[in-house]
Amino acid sequence: MSNHQIKRGVSLYSYQEEFFLQKMSLEDCIAAVAKTGATGIEILGEQSIWGFPKLTDAFVDQWFGWMDKYGVTPVCHDFMLDYTMTKGKYYSDDEALQSIIRDLKFAKRLGFKIMRAIVNITPELMEKAAPYAEEYDIKIGIEVHSPWHINSAWMARHWEVMEKTGSKYLGFVPDMGAFTKRLARVQTDRMIREGADPKIVEFVCEQHEKGIMAEYIIAQVSQMSKRRIDIAVAELTRHNTYYNPIALLQHIPRIFHIHAKFYEMLDDGTEYSIPYEDIIQILIKGGYNGYLSSEYEGNRHIQDVYEVDSVEQVRRQQEMFKRLLGEEVAPNKKSIVVQA
């Protein structure tokens, strides 16, 4: 008997490389999710659906046909706010709201129950969106994305709106990239290939792991090197932050969905940067009952030297989740990616 109700899903964002190169179709991506044993599907409309936000009846039929065929469920559509599509012109609040309503209609038609709001959405706009979220019966969660964490001032303002409105349709979608304990090795390795000083990379990684603030690391590296690439390594610490995941605990009832960001699954079934062992313990303890949705983002750091295998990376992360969630685990395959 399981002691939790956490479900597993995959964001099709994870397969972006193969999808872009047309090695995998949309159906192939959905089939790959099902093959891992995950049941939840997450998409970004602008990435996965040709013609977004328009949907034809034929496509909608095919979509639900795929859901049945592969035994998966639409869970989350990630929406953006394209504030400025022509130079010098910005969305008014009303235009931004219309964009959200457009996405609610899109998500509703494809059976999604949650939408992830982009992190820079204002609390005021979330408040305006709440009645529409209720009308369409789709929960909207702001993405808690590094460098913010769930207790940041920006998220506290959002929390106040959630409390003020009392809406059960407003909440959070934490991205696990906000728990980057170690900088992604695939990323720093690529920067070394592009000319970064390995000693500076080592220094930055050590400092980050010790929890030194990004601005101090950047200031120190600026004393050590004047090269742009070396400073860029130090600047990684600004957007790859770590905050104790215990902070999630008090917000569990407001957490609708989780972006299980990852960069590199190792042969031993662990992720290099993000402490999923700790995170999942906290989610179980807090009674989280939504999806852990794989979000692979390592492709962009290895594509210059290796053929990207997003399917295998996602499979490994899902196997890790099975292990940490107390499900039966399939035997591990040996790595096909050799570290530089």
Binding site: M80, D82, Y83, T84, M85, K87, I118, N120
Partner: peptide, 14 residues
């Protein structure tokens, strides 16, 4: 590419 949903800097440019 001017990314319309990521506004950066003091001017809030894409």
């Amino acid at each position: 590419l001017f990314i319309p949903y990521i506004l950066v800097g003091r001017e809030g440019n894409p």
